[in-house]
């Protein structure tokens, strides 16, 4: 395996909250420009995994390398340069409600790249157009636009700083099937346009099939299966089979 091609490399990652073990030795790597989708049921630690990678949660032990740089155990200040190359689309959008739509999109440009406001606004409107929103929404506040539009603004904010990796946390959850597909298309086109790598966590199989180069399945804090979409459809792994068929019967126990 070519180590230098890996944008992100996670090995033997452990994280527990109290007695609840969430990550139980996760091994995962993301190549440059690759779109990896991590599937798994609710509460299997998908969100914790991407929050660990972004330094939002400190793992108990293990290693996370970004461009070969070890971030676990390194002070956040020294990692900032590497974290700055990553963007994220949050599940609920997580737009700043005290700022207008364009200020949200331009946040990274103004606060970090110190771009002048006027130029940042033009840039924000340009990025908004890329995700299919007109200039008329730019001055609205996030609470004045619909959920689907909020997701698009969140996507615009994530890509505005031209990151090398973008994380998508359940990008299609809470959207109608058509809007979900629009978001999928936007994810594909914006990621391709940037040449960025994407790490998506989802339990929406239609979305996973559409945007993934590679799929990994997380179960009980471990990656139990990895492969392409075709390999997934042919796989005889009982866990994978149960998950993609969406059956209540099988080896995966659902805690009720």
């Amino acid at each position: 395996m070519n180590q230098e091609n890996n944008k992100i490399e996670v090995s033997e990652l452990y994280k527990a909250f109290g007695r609840k073990r969430v990550l139980n030795g996760v091994n995962l790597s993301l190549k440059k420009g690759e779109s990896l989708v991590v599937i798994g049921g609710s509460g299997t630690g998908k969100s914790v995994l991407i929050k660990c990678i972004q330094g939002l949660i400190e793992p108990d032990k293990g290693s996370i390398k970004i461009d070969g740089f070890e971030t676990v155990g390194t002070p956040r200040k020294d990692c900032e340069k590497y974290y700055a190359t990553m963007g994220m689309l949050f599940q609920g959008g997580a737009l700043f409600d005290s700022l207008s739509v364009w200020e949200n999109v331009a946040f990274g440009l103004i606060e970090n790249q110190k771009m002048p406001k006027k130029q940042a606004k033009e840039k924000a409107i340009e990025v908004l157009r890329q995700v299919g929103l007109g200039a008329d929404v730019a001055d609205l506040s996030p609470s004045e636009i619909s959920g689907g539009m909020q997701k698009r603004v969140g996507l615009a904010r994530a890509i505005a700083t031209k990151p090398e990796v973008i994380f998508f946390d359940e990008p299609t959850t809470g959207l109608d099937p058509i809007m979900a597909d629009v978001i999928n298309d936007l994810i594909i086109s914006s990621v391709k346009k940037l040449g960025a790598a994407a790490l998506t966590i989802t339990h929406d199989m239609a979305s996973a099939r559409k945007i993934a180069d590679k799929i990994a399945m997380l179960y009980q804090g471990k990656i139990i299966w990895q492969g392409t979409v075709e390999e997934m459809d042919k796989s005889d792994n009982p866990y994978v089979r149960q998950f993609i068929s969406g059956s209540a019967k099988g080896p995966i126990k659902v805690e009720i």
Partner: peptide, 20 residues
């Protein structure tokens, strides 16, 4: 209330991911 809402709607995490 403001900061708490920002916490539970992941706006604080979003700040971090935007290097702030």
């Amino acid at each position: 209330a403001e900061i708490g809402t920002m916490r539970v709607t992941e706006q604080i995490d979003a700040l971090s991911t935007l290097s702030t």
